[in-house]
Simulated scan of single mutants.
Amino acid sequence: MPVENRLIPAQASRLLSGTTLALMLALGQVPASAQSRELPDFSELVDRVGPAVVNIRTAEKVKVPEGQAELNEQMQEFFRRFGIPVPNQRRGAPRGGGTPDDDGPLRRGVGSGFILSADGYVLTNAHVVQGADEVIVTLTDKRELKAKLIGADQRSDVAVVKIEATALPVVKVGDSNASKVGEWVMAIGSPFGLENTVTAGIISAKQRDTGDLLPLIQTDVAINPGNSGGPLVNMRGEVIGINSQIYSQNGGYMGISFAIPIADAIRVADELRAGGRVVRGYLGVLPDDITKEIAEAIGLGKAQGAVIRSVVAGSPAEKAGVEGGDVVTHVDGKVVDKAADLRRLVASVK
């Protein structure tokens, strides 16, 4: 008995549309609207956010020990006597120990930042401005302004600097807690000093524990030296993080980048602007994660919490009766899943 192949109208329509799309893809004739659903266009976001992103250059005076300076001079004289070429030295270079205020060797650095307020408060990483004797902020209109360090918090790697200017473009701060794994994000910064460089990717993970005080946002956005301190921006043009570090085995980008959630960064920035430093709680313990074996040994249903390895003498923990071997499962009603949670929750206590 012959078998009759039939397609109902809806099936036929879908088949034809799919075939048409395949042909258009092959011929490169896919409508722009269809392409935009697959690959986002970041040009509008760059126009909107870019003017509020700045380049940060730093200079740190390097003091040359007196003995080392004398040795260098002796070596140079030795080379001259035997006709060995000696590199030209800068006139006025210091002889003997120390470095004068306007001369001497400098250690230079480059990073990024973004403007929080129209009167010149700029957010960046603490490691960008750490130890700097001079901080220069370059705006997108090429103005170069000296910046004053308002405060830097090493534990969160957040810093605030201030430039004297008005009516500056500012970023829009988003909700990093609402960001989702898989969504598109964009970074703007100065990798290797290349100002206003734009790269893009997706959020790979959230709440990534890297051993730092704050859990970080992981992305695959290309980040390189000089990007530090720049903004991580979502598709609504909102800053949701500060690009701060990468995972690398060779010092360059390897597809894993990390950003400080903007919700945490703003809290730190507000304290720095108010008092120049961040005040945190202190317990005085050395915590460790609870392994499955420890959990079974002490009768916990699962490996959750932090076990106290040691207690600092005279610390608040010792005064409260905390001892080595104690297990902490909650702080102020909040669950402690691992040792890092205990450190963060205690630090958040004022």
Rank of each mutant, 00 (worst) to 15 (best):
208 R>L: 03
209 D>C: 07
209 D>Q: 14
212 D>N: 14
212 D>E: 12
213 L>W: 11
214 L>W: 07
217 I>K: 02
218 Q>T: 12
221 V>R: 00
221 V>I: 10
222 A>I: 07
222 A>C: 08
222 A>G: 11
224 N>C: 09
225 P>L: 09
226 G>S: 03
226 G>N: 00
227 N>G: 03
228 S>F: 04
228 S>D: 12
230 G>P: 02
231 P>L: 05
232 L>C: 11
232 L>N: 10
234 N>A: 08
235 M>C: 06
236 R>F: 11
236 R>L: 14
238 E>I: 09
239 V>T: 12
239 V>Q: 06
240 I>E: 02
243 N>Q: 12
243 N>R: 09
244 S>H: 04
244 S>G: 15
245 Q>S: 13
245 Q>K: 15
248 S>E: 13
248 S>V: 14
249 Q>A: 14
249 Q>N: 05
249 Q>F: 08
249 Q>H: 06
250 N>R: 06
251 G>A: 03
254 M>A: 12
254 M>K: 01
254 M>E: 15
254 M>F: 01
255 G>W: 00
255 G>V: 01
256 I>G: 00
256 I>L: 15
257 S>I: 00
257 S>F: 00
258 F>G: 02
258 F>N: 00
259 A>R: 00
259 A>V: 07
262 I>D: 07
262 I>W: 00
263 A>F: 11
264 D>E: 14
265 A>P: 13
